[in-house]
Amino acid sequence: MRATYRVLAYLLALEVVVQAAAIAWAVFGLSTWIENGGVLDKAGLESDAIVFDGVTGFMVHGLNGQIIVPAIALVLFIVSFFARFPRAVAWAGAALVTVIVQVALGIFSHTLPALGMLHGAVALVLLVVALIAARKASGPVSVETSTDASTGAHAAQV
């Protein structure tokens, strides 16, 4: 389960990179489209008529951020109970809480745009937490020795 935990944690970190790339693609595509004469208003946002290079980035960022990233974080948290290394649950829990905060910030940033700065900063926190969790799962397996009282022999427990 440590390997599964490690893969999920690295996958969560990779998803942060995918999210950053998707939103950058979308915003740069939109700004280029506007610079070339495109006009964006509420009606355009709500229709499928506006097409520019990068429009798919908005969709990828939204769906990935609200479905895939939370699902990975939840599965990581569940797996953490079986991973059997120190603080596995704590790191996975921190990742899950960070994802919940991140999703909430993404949603509320549409009402209060200044929250978008926190949304970007918390993404970096999630990246670091996921990488630390993955590295912790990569650490050495601790070996404890105990003495069998009846035989006096030492037994290793992993």
Results as ranks from 00 to 15, higher is better:
69 V>G: 00
51 V>N: 07
101 V>W: 07
56 T>N: 11
40 L>G: 01
40 L>P: 01
46 E>N: 06
86 P>E: 15
26 A>G: 01
66 Q>P: 00
87 R>A: 15
9 A>T: 10
125 V>E: 12
104 A>C: 08
68 I>H: 04
141 V>I: 01
26 A>W: 01
39 V>L: 00
3 A>L: 11
24 A>M: 03
148 D>E: 11
42 K>T: 01
39 V>N: 00
101 V>K: 09
137 A>Q: 02
111 T>A: 13
137 A>T: 03
80 S>W: 08
154 H>V: 14
17 V>H: 00
5 Y>E: 07
69 V>L: 14
144 E>S: 04
116 G>K: 07
56 T>C: 04
77 F>I: 11
128 V>C: 09
65 G>I: 08
74 L>P: 05
138 S>A: 14
48 D>S: 12
156 A>C: 04
50 I>T: 12
136 K>T: 02
51 V>Y: 06
106 G>S: 13
15 E>W: 09
70 P>F: 11
2 R>Q: 07
153 A>R: 14
20 A>R: 03
111 T>S: 13
133 A>L: 11
141 V>K: 00
22 A>I: 04
87 R>F: 15
132 I>L: 15
114 A>T: 09
22 A>T: 03
7 V>Y: 12
4 T>L: 15
143 V>Q: 01
93 G>D: 02
64 N>A: 08
15 E>G: 04
20 A>Q: 02
99 V>E: 06
61 H>G: 05
102 Q>H: 14
6 R>F: 07
25 W>T: 01
10 Y>Q: 07
93 G>Y: 04
94 A>F: 10
156 A>F: 10
46 E>D: 07
155 A>E: 13
150 S>H: 09
132 I>M: 13
84 R>T: 13
20 A>G: 04
125 V>F: 14
30 L>K: 03
90 A>R: 10
142 S>Q: 02
62 G>K: 14
63 L>F: 14
50 I>F: 05
100 I>A: 15
81 F>R: 15
104 A>Y: 07
136 K>A: 11
70 P>C: 12
93 G>R: 06
32 T>P: 00
127 L>W: 11
127 L>M: 14
129 V>N: 06
124 L>E: 07
31 S>I: 00
10 Y>G: 06
106 G>Q: 13
52 F>H: 05
140 P>L: 02
58 F>K: 03
156 A>K: 10
14 L>H: 01
53 D>N: 10
157 Q>N: 12
77 F>G: 09
99 V>T: 12
39 V>W: 00
144 E>Q: 05
14 L>P: 01
111 T>I: 07
50 I>Q: 10
37 G>P: 02
142 S>C: 00
129 V>C: 09
97 V>I: 14
32 T>Q: 05
3 A>K: 12
57 G>E: 04
60 V>Q: 09
152 G>E: 08
